[in-house]
Amino acid sequence: MLAYVFRRLVQSALILLGVSFITFLLLYVLPADPVRQIAGRSATPETVENIRRQLGLDQPFIVQYGRYLAGLFHGDMGRSYLQKTEVAALIMARLPATLLLMLGAIVAELAIGLSLGVLAAVRRGGALDQSLMIASFVAVSAPQFVVGLLLLYVFAVKLGWFPIGGYGHLSNLVLPAMTLGIMGSGWYSRMMRSSMIDVLRSDYIRTARAKGLGRARVLALHAMPNAILPIIAMIGIDIGIFMSGIVVVESVFGWPGIGQLAWQAIQRVDIPIIMGVTLVSACAIVLGNLLADLVTPFIDPRIKLR
């Protein structure tokens, strides 16, 4: 087990190194000059060259990348080109908001997905089951930008149940978390449904029913815990999916997380921020996957980590 974890951590580090290299390379070959963004439109050619030299952007790729890595190993992610603030400070200021949003999204997708999945499994083949499964299909494929605006319009503008965007209260969290979670809930309802159907067919459920336990009791205490286990292991993987969703959702709802930071930095070619956010999200994805793999043997003892 320990050897496995160690091996996976080394792998993860290599993956992150690869991610940093590829991102840096892509940003390097990008036909957009960050110095122009910093220097602005009134800058003289000397000003432009002076800024390029000071930022080390006149150096060859390998030198620039080497310097970046060296900084990274000392815990220095550099300073934003345009804001001049340390990237680490910018990310740390926004990371809690993103983590909170993800937590909210996980709660939302589990709550919606699992309950609908159970409902569909119990009513297997019926009209409810079929309409739920169609709905889940729509949920999985709906663009988050549209879902977000729709929720915002209906529940915040028309009904006034929630604030229109913003941050700070639990009521601010509901809509963005739902937007992010709805896609996952479509997934989870389908998985929960098939998982439940398998469990409901098994012998021990029949035994429980045969010994006279009520239907609800059997569902809640005997079937569901076993059906949920394989699904819990998927949450780690969700983190990766969320990372791609936060850019859109945070922009729509004005959620002050790292997705919004990345979006603004991309528009301004602020390379240190783009690199920083990419690496932090890559870390989250790698760790999420690792966590998912580590949790699995506890849930299903038949699986062994080697």
Binding site: V157, I164, G165, V252, G254, W255
Partner: peptide
């Protein structure tokens, strides 16, 4: 207040925020 889409800002103006 930053991080507010223009469309959201307009809705909030209409609500007096």
């Amino acid at each position: 207040e930053v991080g507010q889409e223009p469309i959201v800002a307009l809705l909030r103006l209409q609500k007096g925020e």
